[in-house]
Simulated scan of single mutants.
Amino acid sequence: MAEPTDSLMPGQVDAVALARLYGEPLFALPQDLYIPPDALQVFLEAFEGPLDLLLYLIRKQNFNILDIPMLDVTRQYLGYVDEIRSRNLELAAEYLLMAAMLIEIKSRMLLPARRQEGQEEAEDPRAELVRRLLEYEQIKLAAHQLGALPQYGRDFLPARVHIEQGSRTRFPDVSVQELQQALQAVLRRARLVQHHRITREELSVREYMSHVLKALQGRRFVLLEDLFEPARGATVLVVTFIALLELAKETLVEITQAEAFAPIYVRLAYTPV
């Protein structure tokens, strides 16, 4: 049998791989491995802008912020700007503007001071920069204090306690108005599914004509309303009215009225002997 290769030796199989190259484990770094200088970068300080960098340089060296040594601060500041220009030109643009302002302040300090009318002393060219630095430091300190406050989701979470319900069931209280609303809702749903049945009721007009004649026999006058029976329904009323019209048409009954809007009477037609 063939001898096992070096990659399958027990000592290398049990070892921990340093990395993987195309899916294969590497147990030792290649001797000819080249790492470019720009591959690894360590940032010890991160600044949020030109004012943050200036404040860092001043506080780190314990300079008096009211009497800034512009030469030292400008030299250190330009060194940092040159460093970031080689890596991020867009980020360096904001810092270059502050560098130009520092150079301008330094050049104004080299010139003779000029007093303005109404002022006893000439204005310090560093005054505006000092004011901006002090305001920025106050805001940064306030932001740090706000960030140190406990925050929901980062420093604390709401306490949750599971309480088991007892065996006794407690039903909610129901008012009379809620019961009425529930009943109305049920009635509305019932109307949506309501069925209508239409049935045919056969009624004979001739039969009701005989009923009317029997009611008029032996009576001189009968009120029209007395010939109808409302309790038997609308269909019976209609058929009775049609029967009455048929009797009047065949001159078997007479329908009379003394005057307008007076009661209407019905009687049997007079038949001479």
Rank of each mutant, 00 (worst) to 15 (best):
A92C: 09
M101Y: 06
L223H: 12
V253K: 00
L237A: 08
R75G: 07
T74Y: 03
E3V: 03
I139D: 13
E164R: 04
L111V: 15
A182I: 15
A122H: 05
V16Q: 11
L183Q: 10
L227S: 03
H162K: 05
E83H: 13
T251R: 07
E90L: 11
Q138Y: 14
P158Y: 06
H196S: 10
D82S: 06
R126S: 15
R59Q: 15
D155L: 01
T235D: 08
F27P: 05
R191K: 01
I264G: 02
A17N: 07
T169M: 01
R132T: 13
A231R: 10
L224D: 01
S175R: 01
A122G: 10
I65A: 06
G11Q: 13
I65S: 03
I35D: 02
I65Y: 02
R154W: 05
R87H: 12
Y56P: 00
E246I: 09
H196R: 12
A17D: 10
A122V: 11
Y56W: 13
T256V: 14
R20Y: 13
V212R: 00
F228A: 08
S210W: 12
D72W: 01
L53S: 06
Q12K: 07
P25F: 03
L149N: 05
I198K: 00
A260E: 15
E24I: 13
E83F: 07
R154H: 09
N88K: 06
Y265W: 03
E94H: 05
T169Y: 00
T169K: 00
M101L: 08
Q194N: 02
P36K: 05
R126Y: 06
G147F: 07
R168K: 04
E202M: 04
V130C: 12
G147A: 10
A234S: 07
R197Y: 09
I255S: 05
E48A: 09
K249G: 05
F43G: 04
G153N: 11
V222Q: 00
Y152G: 10
R126H: 09
E178C: 01
R154M: 06
V176D: 15
F43N: 11
Q181P: 08
V176P: 10
L78T: 13
T256I: 14
G49E: 08
P10V: 08
D14I: 15
R75S: 12
R168H: 08
D226Q: 06
L227D: 02
Q41T: 14
R20T: 14
L179A: 13
K60M: 14
T5L: 10
E123P: 03
L227A: 02
D14R: 08
R132D: 15
E137A: 10
K214W: 12
V239D: 03
Q12E: 15
A93I: 11
R170A: 03
V253I: 09
E121S: 02
L54F: 08
V42G: 05
Q165H: 07
R126Q: 14
E137T: 04
L252E: 10
A92F: 11
